[in-house]
Amino acid sequence: MTGPRRRGRKCINERRRIEAILWILRTGAPWRDLPSLFGPWQSAYACSRRWSKCGLWSAVLEALNRSLRDDEYLMIDRSSARVHQHAAGPAGGQIAQAMGRSKASLSTKIHMACDALGYPLGFILTGANVSDFDQCKPLIRQHLAAQSHAIMDKGYDSNAIRECVNQHGGVAVIALHPGRSQKPDFDQHLYRERHRIENLFQRLKHFRRIATRYEKLHATFAAMISLACILIWIKL
Rank of each mutant, 00 (worst) to 15 (best):
D77R: 03
A59H: 14
P30G: 13
I124R: 13
Q167E: 13
L204A: 06
R162W: 12
S48C: 13
Q188K: 15
H86C: 11
L125P: 12
H189R: 10
Q188P: 00
A46K: 14
G55R: 09
R101S: 04
G89P: 00
S102P: 02
A88Q: 15
I197D: 01
R196P: 09
R17H: 07
C114M: 02
G169R: 01
R208Y: 12
I140E: 02
S48Y: 15
L106M: 05
I161M: 02
F201G: 00
E62I: 00
F133G: 01
H218D: 15
A98C: 10
S43K: 09
S158V: 12
W51R: 07
V173G: 03
L68H: 14
V83T: 13
E163P: 00
F133C: 01
D157Q: 10
H177R: 12
K109V: 01
A96N: 03
I197E: 00
A128V: 07
S148R: 08
A146T: 06
Y214C: 04
S181N: 10
E193L: 07
M224C: 10
N166H: 12
F207Y: 14
E72F: 11
P4N: 10
P138F: 05
V130R: 07
A113R: 06
R16P: 03
K109W: 08
Q188F: 11
R66G: 06
A128R: 06
N199Y: 09
L236D: 06
K205Y: 09
F133E: 05
G39H: 11
H149G: 01
A20L: 05
G127R: 03
C114I: 05
V130G: 08
L204C: 08
L22H: 04
R26C: 10
T108M: 08
L74R: 11
V130M: 03
R66E: 15
Y45K: 03
C47N: 11
A29T: 11
H189T: 12
L231Y: 02
E14H: 14
S102Q: 08
I161C: 04
D115C: 09
F207C: 01
F207Q: 00
R194G: 09
W51Q: 04
G93S: 03
R15C: 12
N159I: 13
L64K: 08
Y156N: 00
I76P: 02
C114P: 11
Y119E: 01
D134T: 11
T2Y: 14
A81Q: 14
A219D: 15
P4L: 14
A113D: 11
L176M: 05
Q135D: 05
